[in-house]
Amino acid sequence: MEKGFEQIISWKKSRELNKEVYVLTERALFSKDFALRDQMRRASISISSNIAEGYGRKTKKEFIYFLNVAQASCYEVKSQLYLALDINYLDKVEFEKVYGICDEISKTIYGLIKHLENKT
């Protein structure tokens, strides 16, 4: 049974993103590019971690702050995906799949922020 931050859609999707990022960055060329590999992994992990941490803070204001940090990390992953595509670490299909997951996460985080802001 899900409870707490585990029920948040953007957190669930960020777990999917984490897995995809790790699979992609394990590849021969990508895995040797330590800077991009590690930065992309950290940014991806930051999304799920900040959602969970914000939830744990228990105040709406702090939760919204951490959701914004998570969303910024999602945009960071998007930017890194473009670089990985440009230098042929992944192909267009892989790019679109992972970018699409990032889009879903961004949209659900945005929706959650708006929901929390409108809550009395």
Rank of each mutant, 00 (worst) to 15 (best):
L85A: 00
M40K: 03
I109G: 03
C74L: 07
E117I: 06
V21W: 00
C102P: 00
A72L: 08
V21Y: 00
E117D: 11
I9W: 01
M1L: 07
K32M: 04
Y65I: 13
R15M: 15
E104L: 08
G56K: 06
A28C: 02
I47Y: 07
E76G: 02
I8G: 00
D86H: 05
G54Y: 03
S49T: 13
D86Y: 04
Q39R: 12
E104Q: 14
S44W: 06
L81D: 04
G56D: 07
K13E: 11
K92G: 03
R41T: 12
E6P: 00
K3L: 09
Y110Q: 09
F34W: 06
K12Q: 13
G111P: 07
I9V: 13
K119R: 14
N88H: 14
F95Q: 05
C74R: 02
K58N: 09
S73M: 08
M40Y: 01
L81G: 01
H115Q: 14
G4W: 07
C74Q: 02
A43P: 11
S10F: 03
K60R: 15
Q80I: 06
S79F: 07
G111Q: 05
I9P: 00
A84I: 01
L90N: 04
D38S: 15
I8H: 01
E117A: 07
S73R: 10
F34A: 03
R27N: 12
F30G: 08
V77M: 11
T108A: 04
E96H: 00
K13G: 01
T25F: 12
K60P: 03
K12R: 13
A70P: 12
F63H: 09
I87P: 00
V98N: 02
A84L: 07
N18W: 02
L116S: 14
S73A: 14
S31C: 08
N18L: 11
L81H: 01
A28E: 14
L112Y: 15
F63S: 02
I87V: 12
Y55C: 01
N88F: 09
G100Y: 10
S10K: 04
Y22I: 11
V98T: 15
E2T: 07
I47P: 01
L116E: 13
I45A: 10
Y110F: 11
Y99W: 13
I51A: 03
G100R: 12
A72N: 12
N68Q: 14
G54L: 01
I113E: 06
E2L: 12
A28I: 06
Q71C: 12
T120L: 03
Q80G: 05
E6A: 10
E20G: 06
K3H: 13
I87A: 00
V69N: 08
L36E: 05
K119Q: 14
S106L: 04
Y22C: 13
V93K: 05
D91W: 05
K97N: 12
E104N: 10
R37W: 03
L116K: 14
A72Q: 10
K92M: 09
S73P: 02
Q39L: 04
K3E: 15
D38P: 04
A28V: 04
S49H: 05
Y65M: 08
Y55A: 04
Q80R: 10
T108P: 08
I105H: 05
K12I: 08
L81S: 02
F30P: 06
K19E: 09
L112G: 07
T108Y: 09
A52L: 09
I9S: 06
I101Y: 08
E53R: 06
L67E: 13
D33G: 07
E62A: 11
V21C: 02
K78A: 01
